[in-house]
Design a protein around this nucleic acid. Structure first.
Lengths: 298, 298
DNA sequence: CGATCTTACGGGATTCGTAAACATA
DNA sequence: TATGTTTACGAATCCCGTAAGATCG
């Protein structure tokens, strides 16, 4: 290997001289004095071991080897320029990509406002949202498909790192005019809830698990078990039962004919965590979204 | 445009660090002290405007942007390396191409020995020989298909430049035992030649033109007009006539049953010129062949 | 505590710009 | 002779290596 001391300024100087065919003009383009420019070309030729230009005081022209090198030089400069602008675009958030996985409740109710700000500030960044349950959220972070996740699982492993993001209290949902709707929140107990037909989510949902853990050992009067919160809403509105859902999902229930009431039952608080890969920094685009997400946490 | 002060040493340093994941080891590979290497990486990061590595005292790892840049960096380094070795190979005559146009007589008799030396010295150089008449020789130089030519035309134009290469005297060719074969060369005149049937080359050949100009106004006794010197040889050997050919073509006539005799008739000397493009330097490969050709001129 | 990266700093090489010398049309 | 390149040289800059400081496992 030889002393490859090729700098991009030498490349630029070479190309400028090849195009201008004049040391004086090319030196001007490179913001150099003409003698300094001349030395630069000389150094390049010495490095390469041959003359790239035939020069007389009146004429500057490429040698045959210089012509060959010019093609390579142009290609290299284009590559460098493209790589440099790519990385600078990434640094200045003009280009890039960020991928987030988060719970559907956060994705529908809280996230859109945050993303609107993010997109307004950084319109060039591509955004990938995965609105999935907690477990696939974690999987996406672990596999590298997401930069970070907001999920209800405290995933602290050697590979992953979790920090508390927000806590999500639970609300009673019932038809307007329901007896429980008139109670003060402090007065509602697990037993009160058990007195009415209850619309449950599926056992796989984290909401259901939180709920059962907090109400234990009180058994609920299960009227129905459904998959979607929108279905819960419909059932409650139709008077088929009541339900309890996290605050972050209340946007589903802001409907005429429905009433929501905060609950304060011991242990009935869902914790949301922000999960990312341990010992791996976020991309600039992800970092910016991370900062915004933390600033706008519910 | 920003200050693109990207040097190939920075590229090498970046790639080395990305591969080694250790400043100390990478610095060693780059023949730098570790602090100097560290400064190099810092300067690169400052230029680009973002961090390429996450470093703790125990761990060095690429940032997401660093990973993207690594691909570009590897591609750029490969391009640079390839361009550099190409131009250095050209400078050291390990690769390249040279194209020469020259008269068939020179190509058959004199050139092979020269080319054998050239190829032995520079086996990597591709050689293109055009063994054509003078006019196409000049055309090839003018059109850039040949680096230089050896031809019988003094082609001094604004674009072309000719220098005398060698002079080619003429020889009588006749069957062994022919009366002229016993003469002393000084004694042979144009009239002597005119007394015998003469095998001519075509009027388009430069040999014929030289011959007619030198013998003028003596009219020859034309027995036949053929295109190829080998045909002339056959005809003369068969006793159909005599002929006069340049010394450089005598290898055609070194045959049993034939005799050659130098002629010294006034003006009967063919001048060969080396023709090249004016104000354009020869490639290194062509320069080397040029030097050899001049050193070995007949 | 040990290995490793960063900071501090003095010396040396590189490179710049001005000015004079040189070359060609 | 005029334009444009090269050479000469003092000065500013950049870069390297040694040594001390900081940090993480």
């Amino acid at each position: 290997m030889s002393t490859a001391h090729l700098s991009s300024r030498q490349l630029d100087a070479f190309i400028a001289l090849a195009e201008q065919r004049s040391f004086t003009r090319a030196a001007g383009l490179c913001h150099l004095s003409q003698p300094a420019f001349s030395a630069l070309i000389r150094a390049l030729e010495d490095d390469l071991g041959l003359r790239l230009f035939d020069r007389s005081t009146r004429h500057v022209d490429l040698t045959p080897e210089g012509q060959n090198f010019l093609e390579s030089a142009r290609r290299i400069r284009a590559e460098i320029s493209s790589a440099l602008s790519a990385v600078r675009d990434a640094a200045t958030l003009q280009r890039g990509r960020v991928a987030v996985a988060l719970l559907p409740s956060l994705a529908a109710g809280w996230l859109p406002g945050v993303l609107a700000q993010y997109r307004a500030a950084h319109p060039g960044i591509e955004i990938d949202i995965a609105d999935v349950l907690s477990e696939p959220c974690i999987d996406r972070v672990a596999s590298g498909h997401a930069d970070f996740a907001l999920a209800a699982i405290r995933a602290d492993t050697p590979a992953l790192q979790a920090e508390p993001f927000c806590s999500d209290s639970f609300y009673l949902v019932c038809p307007a005019g329901h007896p429980l709707a008139r109670r003060r929140k402090s007065a509602i107990t697990a037993q009160d809830l058990a007195a009415w037909p209850f619309i449950h989510l599926a056992r796989t949902s984290s909401v259901r698990q939180y709920l059962e853990a907090a109400l234990h050992p009180q058994a609920m009067h299960t009227a129905m078990e459904v998959e979607q919160l929108a279905t819960v809403m419909g059932m409650v509105r139709a008077g088929l039962g009541i339900s309890v859902v996290p605050a972050l999902t209340l946007f589903h229930f802001e409907q005429p004919g429905l009433v929501t009431r905060p609950l304060s039952l011991p242990g009935l608080t869902r914790q949301i965590y922000l999960v990312r890969r341990r010992d791996e920094s976020l991309s600039v685009a992800a970092q910016a979204l991370y900062a915004l997400v933390m600033a706008q946490r519910p």
